[in-house]
């Protein structure tokens, strides 16, 4: 058993024994015996089911914003990127309730295709990750590492950016044609927490009910704008998409724009609202 697992279990046992939290959201080994899945530990015995390894892909902060959990005191295991999600949620005042963040020093998460296997290549987000120690958490498990050089987060965008607008339009049109609007991307995203999603609002009906290219396009376009300056790049939306729409590209592009224009990286400050939710006089408006 790794030191990380021993550390997490000890911390969770303690939190539960002291009744500091009602339950802790962490990871356990899934039904294939290999890949992790989310697990909710309610008792000190259940704390011993918790695991942590390079398959712990889920961003568990999603569970914190579920309406059904309002009023609960919750512990949550966070990787560095997940901690940035938490920071965004704190900045947006999504937590009148109590959360204990158990940060874990992250080894990087592996890419697994659904065909089974495909080896141990790190996920795209992990290949460019320059933050292996959770930036903000209440408890740290693992040894804080010195952060390496800041890597180019946006290399993956280059081929798409090199294309003409017409080519990009054709590319996305083809991608969105496959979308089933199962909403897994939205449901897995911690930054998607509206009580009524614009995509399902009936009055007014912003997005038609038809599951077709035009409606799908509108859904993904508006969703990525809603996430601009808020998406921390966990790429879970892309991982869960059953028809493999590269949503990470879309959100990455918006992250890049926000960084270029506002020098803002989502999830780094809990005392400031994201740039697209605020306006300052000195902000440049080159709308031409």
């Amino acid at each position: 058993m790794s030191d990380l697992v021993t550390g997490i279990r000890a911390q969770v046992r303690d939190l539960l024994a002291r009744r500091r939290v009602e339950y802790v959201v962490g990871y356990e080994t899934g039904s294939d015996g290999v890949n992790a899945r989310p697990f909710f530990a309610y008792t000190t015995e259940e704390a011993d089911r918790l695991v942590f390894d390079n398959t712990c892909t889920h961003n568990l902060t999603k569970y914190l914003v579920e309406p059904e959990r309002r009023g609960s005191t919750i512990g949550v295991v966070v990787k560095p990127c997940d901690a940035r999600s938490l920071t965004v949620l704190l900045a947006e005042h999504k937590f009148p309730r109590d959360v204990v963040a158990i940060g874990v020093v992250c080894p990087g998460i592996v890419q697994r295709t659904r065909e089974g296997g495909d080896g141990e290549a790190p996920q795209a987000r992990c290949q460019v990750c320059d933050q292996h120690t959770p930036p903000a958490c209440d408890i740290l498990v693992g040894e804080a590492t010195a952060e390496g050089p800041v890597l180019d987060q946006f290399a993956r965008l280059a081929p798409l950016e090199a294309q003409s607008a017409a080519e990009r339009s054709a590319f996305w049109s083809q991608q969105f044609e496959r979308c089933l609007r199962c909403y897994a991307c939205r449901q897995t995203c911690p930054q998607c927490y509206c009580d009524e999603c614009f995509a399902e609002a009936l009055d007014p009906e912003w997005v038609g009910v038809r599951i077709g290219r035009a409606e799908n396009w509108l859904f993904h376009a508006i969703r990525c704008f809603h996430l601009a300056g808020r998406c921390i790049g966990c790429d879970e939306c892309e991982r869960v998409c059953p028809v493999k729409i590269p949503l990470g590209l879309l959100n990455r592009k918006l992250r890049k724009e926000v960084l270029d224009r506002f020098e803002y990286r989502a999830g780094t400050r809990s005392d400031e609202r994201p740039p697209l939710e605020t306006f300052r006089k000195e902000e440049k408006l080159d709308l031409a």
Binding site: F39, F40, C182, R186, Q187, V240, P242
Partner: peptide, 12 residues
Amino acid sequence: DRCLGCKMCTYL
């Protein structure tokens, strides 16, 4: 607890 409430299972 861990269900995300998406409709993937029903659509697939």
